[in-house]
């Protein structure tokens, strides 16, 4: 439907211009308003998508999610903003993973014809989105003070590496022989990996890590945009993925630490500092 496509195009344009404005102090406040308008029109026009059902569930879910987020975001103190960004970012990652979950379920049951490109991107988005989801929640818990200890154990990085390799392998197996149970195991392991990856990182490094998860969520959203066939999602997600990666580097540089140091060297860093 041309009107729907035109609105998605306008939304993508508003997002890019909004981000552009947000990168300068004088125009920053207008930037978020522009992006907000893009979001509202994109959401409204989505209700007109042909061949859709479950509208009551949809409206109910939007009402629940919006209300919870609105209340918490309005209430939180200014100093607690970083963990709220982590929380909402984690929700976005979880949403991208949920989209992948629905689509992979269709592929594994044969209700969608297999398409290797779409399935590969769905699996990749599922992996990245799940990691951003659980990782962001750990980052939130740490900054909120719910999780004071930094968990470290021997061979941590090696265990994470093996787990990640296993996830990639599982993802590839699921491409060859799609199976609903395999999909569930894949999601559970991906969520566990996100937790394990974030546990050893100290609270002071969290803003950089949240920025990284923000970029990852963007990437996952871009991938799932391709799976769903929505160009606005591909553009907005990829733009955030790229700008988020750059922003992560800039933030790490402002702290005088390379990003690899933040992610993998937390053990040695603490030992030399303490």
């Amino acid at each position: 439907v041309p009107i729907i496509e035109a609105v998605y195009f306008a939304a993508a344009l508003l997002f890019i211009l909004g981000l552009r404005k947000m990168s300068s102090p004088v125009t920053a406040r207008g930037g978020i308003v522009w992006a907000g308008i893009g979001m509202v029109i994109a959401t409204l026009v989505t209700f007109l998508t042909p061949h859709m059902s479950n509208f009551i569930l949809m409206i109910l879910a939007i009402a629940i999610g919006s209300t919870l987020a609105w209340v918490t975001a309005k209430k939180v103190a200014m100093t607690d903003m970083p963990q709220m960004i982590a929380l909402y970012n984690g929700m976005g990652g979880g949403a991208a993973a949920a989209i992948a979950g629905v689509e992979l379920s269709k592929f594994s049951q044969g209700t969608l014809d297999s398409n290797l490109t779409v399935q590969t991107l769905a699996v990749a988005g599922a992996l990245i989105g799940s990691i951003a989801f659980s990782g962001s929640l750990i980052a939130f818990a740490k900054l909120q003070g719910w999780m004071k200890r930094t968990v470290r154990y021997p061979h941590q990085q090696l265990i994470n590496l093996i787990l990640f390799a296993g996830l990639v392998l599982l993802g590839i197996i699921n491409l060859i022989v799609p199976n609903p149970y395999l999909v569930i195991i894949f999601f559970v392991l991906a969520v566990i990996f996100g937790i394990l990856m974030t546990l050893p990182i100290g609270g002071a490094d969290m803003p950089v890590v949240i920025s990284l998860f923000n970029a990852l969520t963007g990437l996952a959203v871009g991938f799932e945009g391709f799976v769903i066939g929505n160009a606005a999602m591909i553009i907005a997600g990829t733009v955030v993925g790229a700008s988020g990666t750059l922003l992560t580097q800039l933030m790490a540089k402002a702290m005088n630490r390379p990003i690899s140091n933040v992610l993998f060297k937390s053990f040695g860093e603490t030992a030399s500092a303490g």
Binding site: A11, F15, G18, L19, M22, A28, G31, I32, A35, G36, M39, A42, I85, Y88, N89, G92, A95, A96, I99, N214, T217, G218, V221, E224, G225, A232, M233, A236, G237, V239, V240, S243, G244, L247
Partner: peptide, 9 residues
């Protein structure tokens, strides 16, 4: 802000 933009999900 970019966290909001990927809310297009």
């Amino acid at each position: 802000g970019s966290n909001f933009v990927h809310g297009i999900v």
